[in-house]
Each structure stands twice: as C-alpha cells, then as structure tokens.
C-alpha cells in the first residue's frame, strides 16, 4: 500500500517545553493509524504540524510523496482535518456548514449540494439537515464536524480525538463510520487517549508520551514487546517484597507493574504458562491469588512509561 503520510523527525518546542520530540511514523492508504497517548502527550501538536497549523522546528511532513511546506495547497487538497473541538458555525444548519466547508475545499457550486446530501446520508443526519447546529446533540455535532472534513473526498484524513465528550452510542456510530472510511481506502491518522478505540479501530498504533513516540506497531506486535501473549497477576502482601533479591527471577520474568498488593509480570522466552505458574508460586512471598490475562495496550503503556494511561 502506498504511503500517503510520512512524518520524520518532527520536533516542536514551546519555550522550554518540548511538545513533540523526534516523532516519525507513516500512514498508508486504507490504513487507520492510531496515535495513542494521554492528554498533553503531544498528539494535537503533532497533528497541528501535519495539517499546517504549526510550523515544525525540525523534521519533515510528506503528503502523498511531496513535502508539505513546499506545496501546502497541494497537500491541503488531499487532506481532510477534523479538529478536536467542534469547529462549526452554530447558527448555520448542518447542511449549510457542510456546503460552506465543501465550497472552501474547492468543490464547485453545482456539486456541493449533492455531496452534502451524500455526507448527510452517510452520517445518518439527513433528517436533521436543516436544523441549526446549535440544536444538535454532542454526538451529532461531532458527526457533522467529521463530515465537513470529508466533503472534498480527502485521500488522507486526520482525526484529532473525534469522540471526546460524547456518549457510548454516539462514539460507536463514529467509530463504525471511520472504520468504513478506512475500508474504502482512506488513509486515516486517528489520535485518541481511549485504549479501547485504539485497540478495536486501528491497524497500527503509535504510543506517544511527553512528545516522544515510545513504540509503534500492530496490537499483537505491541503485545509481544511484553514477552508473549500472557501476563501473570500476583495478589498478596507484597509491600516488603524485593524481587531483586529473588534468585533467577529477572532471568525468567519481566516486571510490568509492582504495587503493595499486586505484581504484574510477563514471562521471558515463551515458556509454558504452567511452568511459569509453578515458578511464581515458589517465590519467597505469600501469594493469595494468581491470574493469567492477555496483555492490553494499557499494559504496554505501563511497561513503556511506568504508569497507566488512565492515570
């Protein structure tokens, strides 16, 4: 698949704060690439630089093979940007908003009306097309917000946390819509701080924190970083436990998280779970319960940053 967006070595600092630091990734046609990170990780700054709202201090953004800043107008024609905030005119109707942004994106006057009708149908908003946006629910506003970026049929769509602050059903509708767009061949860069969204929607995921891209890959690839597809969760009084003193522990296991009453570890070398379980039960500590679970993105994030994404 052709690469529609290539970002390499992107940097941006605001005073002493390095908001984005040497971030590189690419998004291919038909792919949904998730940029996952907590609030303040640098996702919006990265997307602002990719969409031309901010000039990077260093690095390069290539859209469909051409440098963005060499020919911004060409890149903007290919690109559709959905900002994190609902950037609509409240006084205008949904249709008027779509038609206005469609005209600005270069659609001819004759075609823009038909295209707005198509987008309204696709977003299941045709029956509310004439209502002023200020009378829409949060979910409906979000959908029109996405629709405005789709009017000119962009090959590359940048979605900056498009489901923030809406109810689960509206979120599910939007995710389904985005999935469909990806299936139709649109390259999508999707930023989010919701683990479930990244897990269920994105083909590849980049984990970003403090402006740095810590890891990227498909979900299985990221899970593999933890040493396999299983994690062991030990529960008990672990306050005084000192894993460094346990013989051969670090050769067999990797600590993902250690709390006073919980220890999460993954096994090295793809050993059989029963073998790992036996080793864990022999540890010089009183274990009350051991459970086995599939590693999540949160565990990956935990392993990469030492804290949970939800914190």
């Amino acid at each position: 698949m052709a690469s529609l967006l290539q970002v390499s070595g992107l940097c941006k600092a605001f005073g002493d704060v390095r908001a984005v630091n040497d971030v590189s990734f690419e998004v291919r046609a038909g792919e949904i690439y998730g940029l996952l990170g907590p609030n303040g990780a640098g996702k919006t700054t990265a997307i602002s630089m990719i969409s031309g709202l901010l000039r990077p201090d260093a690095g390069k953004v290539t859209v469909d093979g051409a440098d963005f800043w060499s020919a911004p107008a060409r890149a903007q024609k290919i690109m559709g940007v959905v900002p994190q905030e609902v950037a609509l005119y409240d006084e205008l109707s949904g249709r008027e908003n779509l038609e206005f942004w469609g005209r600005l994106a270069g659609l001819p006057a004759v075609g823009v009306r038909d295209r707005a009708g198509e987008v309204l149908e696709a977003l299941s908003l045709a029956d509310r097309a004439r209502d002023a946006v200020k009378h829409y629910s949060g979910g409906m506003k979000r959908r029109i917000n996405i629709g405005c970026a789709l009017m000119h049929r962009p090959k590359l769509l940048l979605l900056d946390e498009p489901t923030v602050g809406i109810d689960p059903q509206a979120r599910a509708n939007i995710l389904e819509f985005v999935r469909k767009l990806g299936a139709e061949g649109t390259a999508i860069l999707y930023t989010t701080h919701y683990l479930e969204e990244a897990e269920t929607l994105c083909g590849r995921i980049g984990i970003i924190d403090h402006g740095q891209l810590l890891a990227e890959g498909t979900l299985p690839e990221l899970q593999k970083r933890l040493g396999g597809d299983q994690l062991f969760v030990l529960e008990g009084d672990l306050q005084q436990a000192k894993p460094d003193d346990w013989p051969e522990f670090h050769e067999r296991f990797r600590i993902i998280q250690k709390l006073d009453r919980q220890l999460v570890v993954s096994a090295h070398n793809s050993r059989h779970p029963s073998e790992c379980l036996r080793d864990l039960l022999e540890l010089p500590v009183r274990v009350e319960n051991v459970t086995l679970k599939r590693p999540s993105l949160n565990d990956v994030f935990l392993q990469l940053t030492g804290r949970e994404l939800r914190e």
Binding site: P72, A73, Q76, A87, Y89, D90, A105, C148
Partner: peptide, 13 residues
C-alpha cells in the same frame, strides 16, 4: 475562538 479559523487554515495557507 470557535476554531473555525483554524479549520480554514487547514484548507488554505
């Protein structure tokens, strides 16, 4: 304030 100017800027430099 409504970020519509930012949206405009993603379409025209």
């Amino acid at each position: 304030k409504a970020r519509t100017l930012d949206r405009f800027r993603t379409l025209h430099d």
